[in-house]
Design a protein around this nucleic acid. Structure first.
Length: 650
RNA sequence: GGCGGCGUAGCUCAGUUGGUCAGAGCAUGCGGUUCAUACCCGCAGUGUCGGUGGUUCGAAUCCACCCGCCGCUACCA
């Protein structure tokens, strides 16, 4: 059974899915949470060399989408196309490494869904009958019996009495398979996780399964039943089938057999029932094997309650990435909440995790290691000498930690995997304290020891670089770069993390900017307060005092990225590093500088200038440039010699 | 109403089959260090383990009841 959990048996494949997201609105942090988790697991399996297939996508049919589209005066397809574009852009920014993005409007998917429907109908498990229920003509929708009672028989939206109505519909014989499903759940304890979800499902099935209405005639935005096109195939068959249509069911049998059954369907707990009852029964009706695991994770909630658009408390992941960087957001999502449990999102917690784990522990470890190698060994990775007892602890811990990571991921405990890796980081920081390599390096007699210690630290960082690739996107590359490794860390194999001593001595460390700058919350609030009270700048009088000058906070900044501002011929948007802080500034120098020419340059900026919006972009500061009166010549001010970004100009 | 779960240090939570289980991380205080991103290392706490009864030589851990919170109780994806 343990083997099963790790992957698809001897085929060595690994197939993981997210839910397909409903395209009636933009995505928020909750969807991002699921997808990032799936991405981390997929990346980890690839790192281990598994033949991995990671599927995500969108569920695009249904009445809600049709209504939304009509409301915005668009064709449904055009409406969902626009949303899909935004979703794909979000995934690109989050670094989601999906192998396929399925849309339920893909013609291939639609055809297979029709085939599935007919197959099951031919088998007798789908039959035509009358659906009778409480109907609101205004909504063009049925209400359930419980809803009817709760609402007192009136539609809340239209304040009209609900009518008893019959409609011709197709039904799916769920009940027929209830016993089989129950038996499967009992004999496969890993099938539904966590256990609290399984209990709910079991008790639900034991109450008895009614046949399920699987078609609609009240709207048209869906896949028609081929033999009876007045009816549209309702969401269960349409959406759930994506997990098999995406990998070639009925169209590419070889690929389908290769990846099916899925190793994990990762879902939010609110859709557990569909995935643990309806979906398995569809598969049974098709005589297909069931997925190995359905994992219903908890919700990422806000302290103020559940996220909803009407409350205006939706967290836009794009905003967070811009503010804190993709690694900080990914790390927070993966680390903060034990998978399975519900958790609360707070920006303070995100900042705390970033500062404590990423900046203080990991970033600073790299920083102090490379700094010491620079100072004591001329910036070359030293040759390790004989290992003493304490030196062996690090490789031993690395080995056991990597084992813990494997186990944690097998159990979908992503947070646990990160906790394990941080034990190695903590131990490394302590190792520095215990051995004091900076002191060892001063004395010629102990210099060799310093080399051994620093090599071990650098080697540990090399391993961490590999082991972190499933979780973080930018930091692993930067770690390897700073260690003088030219190879692409994302191409490294898990075995390279397990092998101690692969870091070549003599490689030139390339100390860079802090891996994760601390997020200074006090400064942030001070700036916030300053925004309201900041006086307008005086219009330059002929003579000023030194105190006046000191009001200017001029700083050296390094240009990290530069690009033209669309629709503006004079403007460049720059991302600059000022000390520990990253900022965006907009500068009117596009006529004189190509963006590429500025990347990596050190410039001087006014750091305490009130933020301004230029062409809709926030500009946090201003770069200094000298120019002629008519603007025909212009030169950006740069320090004559290298000084660290953030240095004060005075 | 029925079924299931939760309530442990300021905060977030671990606590296997009852006997060093009263813990970890963060936050706080003190000390050390200076290679490093005011960082790192060490030490120190505080807790009626929701309440009340019970079983037991012994319960956070089992039972009963009570209080508070949450999930599920089907055709909304």
């Amino acid at each position: 059974m343990k083997e099963k959990l790790k992957g698809n048996g001897k085929k060595g494949t690994f197939y993981i899915t997210t839910p397909i997201y409903y395209t009636n609105d933009n995505l928020h942090i909750g969807h991002t949470y699921t997808t990032v988790a799936a991405d981390a697991i997929a990346r980890f399996r690839r790192l281990q060399g598994r033949d991995t297939f990671f599927l995500t996508g969108t569920d695009e049919h249904g009445q809600k989408v049709q209504r939304r589209a009509e409301a915005s005066g668009k064709d449904p397809k055009a409406y969902v196309d626009a949303i899909v574009e935004r979703i794909k852009a979000l995934w690109a920014k989050m670094g989601i490494s999906y192998d396929h993005f399925i849309r339920t409007t893909d013609p291939g998917h639609e055809w297979v869904v029709q085939q599935i429907f007919e197959k099951i109908q031919a088998k007798g498990d789908i039959y035509k009958a009358e659906y009778e229920g409480w109907y609101c003509t205004g909504c063009e929708a049925f209400f359930t019996e419980t809803q009817y009672k709760d609402l007192g028989g009136r539609c809340p939206d239209h304040d009209a009495p609900l009518e008893r109505l019959r409609e011709e519909s197709y039904f799916f014989r769920l009940g027929k398979y209830a016993d089989r499903l129950l038996k499967h759940i009992e004999t496969h304890p890993e099938f539904i996780q966590p256990v609290s979800r399984r209990n709910e499902i079991v008790s639900f099935i034991k109450q008895g399964l009614e046949d399920l209405c699987v078609s609609r005639t009240t709207f048209s935005w869906g896949i028609p039943i081929a033999s009876d096109p007045r009816h549209v195939i309702y969401v269960w068959f349409d959406a759930l089938s994506n997990y098999i249509t995406a990998i070639g069911y009925l169209t590419d049998e070889e690929k389908f057999r290769h990846y099916w059954p899925a190793d994990v369907h990762l879902i939010g707990k609110e859709i557990t029932r569909f995935h643990c009852i309806i979906w398995p029964i569809i598969l049974m009706a098709l005589d297909l094997p069931l997925p190995r695991r359905v994992f219903g994770h908890g919700w990422l909630q806000l302290e103020s309650g559940k996220m909803s658009k009407s409350r205006g408390n939706v967290i836009d992941p794009l905003v967070l990435i811009d503010k804190y960087g993709v690694d900080a957001v990914r790390y927070y999502l993966l680390r903060e909440i034990p998978f399975g449990a519900d958790g609360f999102y707070t920006e303070d917690a995100l900042i705390l995790r970033t500062n404590v784990d990423l900046a203080n522990d990991l970033g600073n470890l790299l920083s102090r290691t490379t700094a010491m190698i620079n100072q004591a060994f001329g910036g070359r990775i030293p040759e390790p000498g004989p290992a003493e007892a304490i030196d062996r602890e690090l490789p031993e811990l690395a080995k056991s930690v990597l084992g813990e990571v494997e186990t944690a991921i097998d159990n979908l405990e992503i947070s646990g995997a990160l906790t394990a890796l941080w034990k190695l980081i903590d131990r490394s920081n302590k190792y520095i304290d215990e051995t004091s390599p900076w002191a060892l390096a001063r004395d010629e007699k102990t210099r060799g020891r310093a080399g051994t210690v620093l090599y071990n630290l650098a080697e540990t960082l090399r391993i961490l670089g590999v082991a972190l690739t499933p979780f973080l996107l930018e930091a692993p590359r930067e770690i390897w770069k700073q260690l003088g490794l030219d190879a692409d860390v994302t191409k490294a194999a898990w075995d390279e993390a397990k092998a101690w001593g692969k870091l070549p001595p003599g490689a030139p460390v390339r100390r860079g900017l802090p891996l994760f700058p601390r997020i200074e919350t006090k400064d942030a609030t001070a700036n916030e307060a300053g925004k309201e009270t900041a006086p307008t700048a005086p219009t330059a009088p002929p003579l000023i005092s030194i105190d006046d000058f000191r009001k200017l906070d001029l700083r050296v900044a390094r240009v990290l990225a530069a690009e033209r501002v669309a629709g503006a011929d004079k403007l460049l948007r720059l991302e600059v590093q000022v000390g520990r802080e990253k900022r965006q500034i907009v500068a009117g120098i596009a006529k004189h500088y190509e963006p590429e020419a500025l990347i990596g340059q050190d410039i001087v900026v006014v750091a305490n200038l009130r933020p301004a919006k230029i062409r809709g972009l926030e500009s946090n500061g201003m770069l200094l440039a000298a120019s002629t009166e008519d603007g025909s010549q212009l030169g950006v001010v740069t320090p004559e010699r290298p000084v660290p970004p953030g240095s004060r100009v005075k």
